[in-house]
Nucleic acid binder design. Structure first.
Lengths: 335, 335
DNA sequence: TTGAAAGCGCTAACAC
DNA sequence: GTGTTAGCGCTTTCAA
């Protein structure tokens, strides 16, 4: 990496002249500018980002904290974040909390030493269960902005990007009700999460609002992912009247579909299923699973836009809470 | 963020005294050290990472370039990379090439301005197909080390972490041969990639080495992911004698299993299937897919170890090529 | 039109 | 034992 200083020596001008010439200042003579630019190109000069960061107290870097990168939803959000960041000229430093409070708090603290201009994050499961928020406040106190997506902390005043989890679960459930399903199973694999609670509420509300349809909802809370298949199968064994399933996490929908098929249900004739899975599971299901599309990449993009906007605006702005649209993709497991 | 300077003012000592005290220098008196440390803790002092980077010409940051984060394999490698990096005190800046040469070259160039100490990457599909390598050489010329994993460039002399793709495909195929399968289908969705070619070679070699078993191999090359299911089904329709399948990419195995089930094959009695998928697809298959386990997180961890080792060693070291073990997980789709 | 100098936050060689 | 100073690479004010 060649520096300004070295360029200046080669050109026999001062450092500041080179700097100005390269930055298109009109203080410098045309001839000099040309000469400097040529030499800079020749030696492939690129301004040292670290020096710039120190000078400007801006790193043009966003810290991203993801709870679980193996979850396809988060991978897709990250995809959106990276795409939009690159567009806006920002780098992203990625940390994975692996659903642990300790790791999350640690990453925040570590990156708050000048490594990043702001954070985009979704809260770890453990953090939500233990209702920890002090580590967020610490960062915010240092005037480093945080944007939370998906799993957010209501008590914390910061930018947020969310889905209307309540509404979308409501709509999904209502779809099944209108199909005439009477005994709907709600598979809840994420009861510890803010979004899990919201989605469950939406399901119950739909049942309530549609009392005259006389549909009922039974909720099945599953603690761990490990025994998912076994649990669902066992449940279906003891609840023969189930004729509709809403699975509000990323994978239960597919598992439920497989279980139901295995038990001989004709789908969607005898049973409807709606999952929250993303497109990625479609190659694996037959019939094709009807799903709630989470527009994960849009969530990532919006997050970056809002955060960058805050970082680059002069005046303090009100915190924004953006709700991203969802859509119900009815495919082959619904009527 | 409080600085050394501010601390020094509060304590009425010089900046360097504070610095030395905090860094445990024995030049400073015990009492002062105590006083300084206490105040530092009180004000939650943390050394500014950017300043340190500038000073040391070391960022303690690794640039990671991933071809496709929506591919579970890469997500898992990233998981391993992040885990080991954190352990070693490094941050990672993540870039996604999305399989494009342009984006890959761009990311390399962008981060080579002092943002990172080295790179860990897997080559984009387009780069491999077009056989581009100049962008790697540029970076290496600047003395910034690159470590390539999985998809590597043979012509480039740098650290590499790979699986024995040839051997593992060989073993998988041999397994089917020994099960008595006579008409084995090789589903190749990644013919453009170095690893795809290696795996295919392994399959052919197994057939050759086991001539006396009289098994045959038919290769099906698939260009795009979009029509995967349709293509596989169509193929099975016109090739009724197929009794074994080796799918050498991440998802074809599951798709093939579903297709075969749909066509009424009894598995594994009438047909054996081995995929290269990771554990993540298991909840979605019944019977459970037999797979080649890629140990993706180990690949990520090894990559970080090797790169960090190079970054922190005084003497120039020979480039290392590490081969990560694989294992054949025979589950329910093989005999 | 060009250059000198200060300063971003830190460390370390050197002076006191 | 503590302080001064230079310097990492850059921008920017001010002086020439």
């Amino acid at each position: 990496m060649i520096t300004l200083k070295e360029l200046a020596e080669k050109l026999n001008v001062s450092i500041s002249t080179v700097s100005k010439a390269l930055n298109g200042s009109n203080e410098i003579g045309e001839a000099t500018v040309a000469r400097v630019k040529e030499t800079a190109k020749m030696y492939n000069y690129k301004p040292n980002r670290v020096a710039l960061s120190l000078k400007n107290s801006k790193t043009k870097t966003i810290g991203v904290i993801i709870p679980d990168i193996l979850n396809h939803y988060f991978a897709k959000v990250l995809y959106g974040i990276e795409k939009e960041s690159a567009k806006q000229g920002y780098n992203i430093i990625t940390c994975l909390s692996n659903e642990l409070y300790e790791k999350e708090a640690n990453s925040l603290e570590l990156l708050a030493n000048g490594s990043v201009d702001g954070f985009i994050m979704s809260i770890a499961e453990e953090t939500q269960i233990k209702k920890k928020t002090d580590h967020f406040k610490d960062i915010l106190d240092q005037k480093i902005p945080i944007l939370m997506f998906d799993r957010v902390a209501d008590e914390i005043d910061c930018d947020k990007v969310i889905m209307n989890d309540f509404q979308v679960a409501y709509d999904a459930t209502m779809q099944l009700i209108k199909e005439g399903r009477k005994n709907i199973l709600l598979i809840n694999n994420i009861d510890g999460l803010s979004v899990g609670k919201l989605r469950a509420k939406g399901c119950y509300k739909a049942i309530e609002d549609a009392k005259h349809y006389d549909s009922s909802l039974i909720e099945m809370k599953i603690a761990k992912i490990s025994c998912l298949e076994a649990e669902i199968e066992a449940f279906l064994n003891t609840h023969k009247t189930i004729d509709g399933i809403v699975a509000i996490d990323n994978i239960s929908g597919v598992v439920a579909l497989n279980s139901a098929k295995k038990k001989g249900y004709i789908i969607p004739k005898e049973m409807s299923i709606i999952g929250f899975s993303d497109d990625n599971v479609l190659p694996f299901t037959s019939p094709k699973l009807s799903t709630v599309a989470q527009h994960s990449d849009a969530i990532g993009e919006a997050s970056v836009q809002i955060l960058v906007n805050r970082l680059e605006s002069k005046e303090p702005t009100d915190t924004v809470i953006r709700t991203i649209d969802f859509s119900l993709n009815l495919r082959e497991t619904t009527l």
